[in-house]
């Protein structure tokens, strides 16, 4: 470069720099600095801060968050909500299909069990399966999806095909096939069910993660981090992933509901949790035979199940609206 078109370089002839000198004012003296000073309360909110501000005013969010809180409390401490523990207190066949009486607000099942107590204690298994399946799916789907989206190229192509293969088997169908495998047949419990559902549930999260990572991976702040010497992998973990979390969390919330339904569906079909485990699906299945004479034992666990699932779907919906700036403007 010639000195002429690079006037700010030190040691140049005075003639070329003089006309530009008054632009290079000393920073400390300029009054603009005071104006520019960013006050803390005027700082733009982060995506999450903005979303939280929006969510607090959303009835959909408040209702679903409250319901989820109740469901969480019920599954953690069922004893607080029901004085009767169906696991220790035997059902009385004498009160088979009996109506509601004092202390038994929802009546009795065909086996003479307290419907209300079973509904309260059934929450735990359903929520456990839903929650841990979601965590497992997030782990596997998140890893596969972020690697595919971030590294691209042949890795992406191979992972996408594997994803397609698992996607070709719908969740319930795949679970039914996997359940008949002798090992799972012999060990039916909530944890094997979680494994089975994770095997066929991860592709969806993987797809969402891949899309979200692709959107972020070329952002300026990632390039900046890379050029400051952050390794490719830690750029993924520390810069790309935290910024692509929003859609993943939305889908994970909704699929928590889906997995609770999947557990109930499989238990309802008689191939999910063993009958010894109290769960809504099992109770609905057991009440099925006396549906026409006494529909209530089927209805109550069904309502509990629907409300739980619904609140996760509503929460996901509210989160989606709050986290998507495009949707917010509309």
């Amino acid at each position: 470069m010639t000195p002429d078109n690079n006037p700010n370089r030190p040691g140049e002839t005075p003639g070329t720099t003089r006309s530009l000198e008054h632009f290079v004012a000393e920073v400390a003296e300029t009054p603009l600095q005071a104006v520019d000073q960013v006050k803390e309360e005027s700082a733009p909110l982060s995506l999450w801060g903005e979303a939280w501000k929006n969510l607090r005013k959303q009835p959909l969010f408040l209702i679903s968050a409250f319901l989820i809180l109740v469901v969480a409390l019920v599954s953690l401490f069922p004893g607080l909500f029901s004085p009767i523990n169906p696991a220790t207190e035997a059902c009385q066949l004498s009160s088979s299909n009996g109506p509601a009486t004092a202390g038994h607000p929802l009546g009795f099942t065909k086996q003479g069990c307290d419907v209300y107590a079973r509904m309260i204690f059934g929450a735990q298994a359903s929520v456990t399966v839903g929650l841990f399946t979601t965590l497992g799916v997030l782990l596997i789907g998140g890893i596969v999806g972020s690697i595919a989206g971030y590294y691209g190229g042949w890795i992406d192509a191979v992972l996408a095909r594997i994803n397609d293969i698992f996607f070709a088997l719908p969740l319930i169908l795949g679970a039914i096939v996997l359940i008949q495998v002798p090992y799972f047949r012999a060990n039916r419990n909530p944890w094997t069910l979680v494994v089975i559902l994770v095997v066929f549930g991860w592709p969806q999260i993987a797809r969402i993660t891949r899309g979200a990572v692709i959107e972020v991976r070329n952002a300026d702040f990632v390039t900046a981090a890379r050029s400051l010497g952050v390794s490719k992998f830690s750029a993924l973990v520390r810069h790309v992933l935290p910024n692509s979390l929003a859609p993943i969390i939305v889908v994970a919330t909704i699929s928590l509901g889906t997995f609770i339904v999947a557990e109930a569906t499989l238990s309802f079909l008689g191939i999910g949790l063993p009958p010894s485990v109290m769960s809504w699906g099992n109770d609905i299945q057991a009440a099925q035979s006396s549906l026409r004479s006494n529909p209530l034992p089927l209805l109550y666990p069904a309502i509990a199940l629907s409300i739980t699932v619904l609140s996760f779907i509503m929460l996901g919906d509210a989160l989606r609206d709050a986290l998507d700036p495009k949707a917010r403007k509309r």
Binding site: R161, I165, V177, R185
Partner: peptide, 28 residues
């Protein structure tokens, strides 16, 4: 062309799950 590996993979997966995981399907 993308369909072919998906179909082969899915059938292989199902076949493997039913017949080749630990446990004898005939004995069951």
């Amino acid at each position: 062309l993308q369909v072919i590996p998906v179909f082969l993979g899915a059938t292989l997966l199902v076949y493997f799950l039913v017949f080749s995981l630990p446990g004898d399907p005939i004995a069951a």
